[in-house]
Design a protein around this nucleic acid. Structure first.
Lengths: 247, 247
DNA sequence: CGTGCCCTTGAAGATCTTCAAACGCAGTGG
DNA sequence: CCACTGCGTTTGAAGATCTTCAAGGGCACG
């Protein structure tokens, strides 16, 4: 872990200035925020922070990605969401609770900015605009989790997997020949942990969709070939035809 | 709907002063807040606000209770939570989004305080302490929904029903002879909508628990006779003995 | 070239939903 | 006062959905 040097400041200012939490705050405040940050390269296979531990650091991803998980009583892992560049993690821990409500796993090569809980709370108190941004941030996240809760409560597995893939396309989609690649390592187990099912069921569903030409999948890799097909499945509409996806 | 008269001010000041959103703010601010509120008696069988409609009012319950629901695509109703006296509803709608993310149904005799979206946002901007309270409020709610999400994703129906009952005991429990009454009209369908199952399954589970002496239930009414029994079910522990509950 | 990890597939079965029928209590109106 | 009626509830039976367990395949990486 190292203090942020002046050379990195410009990039970081841009990153934070475009982030939901810090957007719209004055340049001088942003400079103060950057000055108080510590940068860290996350080590692979080690959690950046761990569910249940005292909340010490607020976190913004610079490059790479975090995976936020919770553990069920029986040890089943649930994936809450992925955190990409410019996005914040551990907001809850710092704004409200005393412990992290989730564990954060870093992809290889992930770099993060960290602020201590105390620093973050001081910044919020000193700059009301920041507190309002934080309120918006957390509110948006609440809306999203409530929606996922409703989906989990009312929809079948295939439908939920379709939704998960569509979210991932929006979040990490990259156009490739013949479709949209979800540009991150994504195992069947990951998809299962996102949708409240098992890796076996995910495997079966993806195989079925592959035979219908909706997706193409390999080891930790999914390409969505016909997004409209997934939308139809997610919205529980009559299945679309292969031709429906041309634009 | 009527402006709040001076005679009601003292009670309302107490109620708001003790609420999560307004606690700790200065008396004069609180007075301003009350002055800007409108009080409303909710009509039975009519929604106080409706999912998907433009967010116009922020809401705090004075007496009675609101039931917040969402609709699934197929019309299945999901209950997000209940809102009691001093608690806020439609926080999301006002702090972040443009539309209500849920529908609010009032119990008979429910009275609410309402602030327009614009008023609420002006108050937040004018009083940073209020924004920090709001941040804490929404953060706490996010933590709670994430936990319920995990439960829905990892636990069996009976376990989730046990948890729902324990939450209701905490929220609306009233000691009665032989147990704790959940002091509100609570149908099997309600419990099903809280836990992502069907009223039939809830009925079967409650019948089973009744035969074990854990609960006693009637039409829209549940008495928890052995809370520890429910805790054991919720935590997936070996079943407790009837004697375990004496204090 | 082996080894580990992820993935696939089948079969069996648990869990839960769906549908149908009927019960019983509460409130209503005769 | 009583029958009627509506609504929440119960219960059984059938079956859909999904999980669990087992076995094996295949790709990437060392």
């Amino acid at each position: 872990m190292a203090a942020v040097g002046p050379s990195a400041d410009v990039q970081l200012l841009d990153l934070l200035g475009a982030s939901q939490l810090f957007h719209g705050v004055e340049r001088e405040v942003l400079a103060e925020v950057v000055a108080r940050a510590r940068e860290q390269r996350a080590e692979a296979d080690r959690a950046v922070f761990t569910e249940g531990e005292p909340a010490a650091w607020f976190c913004v991803v610079v490059t790479g990605r975090l995976k936020l998980t919770q553990l069920g009583l029986d040890g089943t892992e649930v994936i809450l969401r992925f955190v990409g560049p410019g996005e914040a993690a551990a907001a809850l821990a710092v704004f409200e609770g005393a412990v992290y409500p989730a564990t954060a796993w870093a992809e290889r090569g992930t770099r993060t900015l960290l602020w201590s809980r105390e620093t973050m709370q001081a910044l919020l108190r000193a700059h009301p605009a920041l507190a309002l941004n934080a309120l918006e941030l957390v509110s948006g996240r609440l809306r999203e989790v409530q929606e996922r809760f409703r989906e989990l409560a009312t929809e079948r597995v295939a439908q939920r997997i379709a939704r998960a893939l569509l979210r991932l396309v929006r979040q990490a989609g990259r156009k490739v020949e013949g479709g949209v690649l979800i540009d991150m390592p994504l195992s069947r187990q990951d998809l299962a942990a996102m949708t409240g099912t098992t890796l076996f069921t995910v495997s079966r569903v993806l195989s079925e969709w592959e035979s219908q030409g909706i997706v193409e999948s390999a080891r930790e890799r999914v390409v969505v070939k016909r997004p409209h097909g997934l939308v139809a499945l997610a919205e529980d509409l009559p299945p679309s035809q292969p031709g429906d996806d041309r634009q």
